[in-house]
């Protein structure tokens, strides 16, 4: 397990991921952003479909998370609230399949530059390393 390198897919909205545009991958990693996390930018997390997040698991993700605006301050009013409900629906489906629901998470962050973007990435990296490879990859059977 110690040589496990997680594949974590993050889906961030345009507003919460502005830092990534300015700093670039190297700049983010210099801030402590884990290399195990791949950022996928979306115009708004409300645009993310359940099937898009499931596809990340199908494509081999060990963990998936969504970063949207604060619940009451979404640039598109309710986009991040919708995303949170979709993440919750996937948590329920993962639990039904006997998979840890914590493999997917929703975070609400302020837009722009802030250390929390790095903090949630590190939190997910730590969480997924502890959980180990996703059983949805079918490698344990």
């Amino acid at each position: 397990m110690s040589d496990f390198t997680p594949n974590i897919q993050a889906f961030c909205c345009h507003y919460t991921s502005q830092q990534t545009c300015v700093e670039g991958k190297a700049g983010l990693q210099a801030d402590g952003f884990p290399a195990t996390v791949t950022l996928n930018r979306a115009v708004c997390t409300g645009k993310l479909q359940v099937s898009s997040l499931l596809k990340a698991f199908e494509d081999g993700a060990d963990g998936v998370y969504v970063v949207g605006c604060p619940e009451d301050k979404c640039h598109n009013l309710m986009g991040s609230q919708r995303a949170a409900k979709r993440v919750a629906a996937i948590k329920k489906a993962l639990a039904e399949l006997g998979v840890e629901p914590e493999r997917i998470e929703m975070f609400h962050l302020e837009r722009g530059f802030h250390p929390e973007l790095v903090a949630v990435a590190r939190e997910m990296d730590k969480r997924i390393r502890a959980l180990g490879p996703s059983p949805l990859k079918g490698e344990s059977k």
Binding site: L54, K55, F57, E58, L97, V99, P135, K141
Partner: peptide, 11 residues
């Protein structure tokens, strides 16, 4: 998608 994931988990 869920069916593919669930079946992959079951090997």
């Amino acid at each position: 998608s869920l069916l593919r994931l669930g079946r992959r988990k079951e090997g």
